[in-house]
């Protein structure tokens, strides 16, 4: 009897050991990938605090031996870095706002209203997603020129007012997470369509719009080609265009580039930390991501 119990216990222990080995392997692999992903960021921030000599030293150090702020001082003194950050920030925030508004309204209408033409509109909107921006960048440039909005935030915005993926994301979420009965109940309760959109639909789309907001913000924040051709004066550069200045035909000023990049990282990381939960929820609920 006791032999049987012992054997059962031994089998149980073996199973527990095997499971903890699997768990440990998963942890090791995930940690390894996390490190690989985060290492460039860590090195970038660390480089920003290094002297030119230490930056070129081998093996590279993660924590600088002699931390210095000279790179930051040089960047802030020699370039209008803060102006570029402000340009990027206003462009990215306005673009995010516009994309959130256009996506929420269009996605809601496409998801919840019935009309023959709506499916045609939706197909056209989806079709625009497969046309690369570079294809219509030049005609758009001429439009911006004729509107007289070159070298301004409005010119930058012209290419970033609507996001077809955002419309798609909102439409899918509206269909899956807002039952028709909810809107019908509100209509019977006496609510008008605008009221329903504002008081029922928008609050329920908070997670989705949070995720879309982050995507839209970074799309504008990291955009390069459009700002490069629309903003042609040093004062109107966005940060991405400004950063490219550190790389000339012959040299790359690594110290100042790292310092400028580290400054640029601050708003991105802050935004992600603030909206982390919304982002994961919004993207996970649709199983979609750009």
């Amino acid at each position: 009897m006791s032999t049987v119990t012992d054997r059962t216990r031994a089998l149980g222990m073996a199973r527990i050991r095997r499971r903890s080995f699997v768990d440990l392997s998963i942890d090791v692999v995930l940690t390894l990938f996390c490190l690989l992903m985060i290492l460039p960021l860590v090195l970038l921030v660390s480089n920003a605090f290094k002297t030119p000599q230490e930056m070129l030293a081998w093996p590279p150090t993660v924590i600088p031996d002699v931390p210095t702020l000279s790179n930051f001082k040089a960047v802030l003194a020699d370039t209008p870095l803060l102006r570029w950050v402000a340009n990027s920030l206003s462009f990215a925030l306005l673009s995010t706002l516009c994309i959130l508004m256009t996506s929420a309204i269009t996605g809601y209408i496409l998801g919840k209203f019935r009309h023959r033409l709506l499916s045609v509109f939706f197909a056209i909107i989806l079709a625009t997603a497969i046309v690369p921006f570079e294809v219509y960048m030049i005609p758009l440039y001429f439009q911006a020129q004729s509107l007289g909005v070159l070298n301004s935030t409005w010119g930058l915005l012209l290419g970033y007012l609507v996001m077809s993926f955002g419309i798609f994301l909102v439409r899918q979420n509206v269909i899956h997470s807002i039952p028709d009965e909810l809107l019908e109940a509100a209509r019977i309760d006496g609510a008008g369509e605008l009221w329903i959109f504002w008081r029922i639909v928008l609050p329920l789309l908070r997670g989705t719009l949070g995720a879309l907001g982050i995507l839209a913000f970074f799309q504008a924040w990291t955009s390069f080609a459009w700002p490069l051709i629309v903003a042609t004066t040093r004062e109107t550069y966005t940060i991405e265009v400004g950063l490219a200045l550190f790389q000339t035909g012959f040299t790359v000023d690594l110290g100042r580039l790292s310092a400028a990049s580290a400054v640029v990282l601050i708003p991105s990381v802050t935004l992600f930390v603030l909206l982390r939960r919304n982002f994961v929820q919004g993207v996970a609920s649709t199983g979609l991501k750009e």
Partner: peptide, 16 residues
């Protein structure tokens, strides 16, 4: 619907 002076209870409750 809002002017019909009715109230409806739905199968899935339709609570906000």
């Amino acid at each position: 619907p809002k002017h019909r002076d009715i109230a409806m209870v739905f199968q899935n409750y339709a609570l906000y």
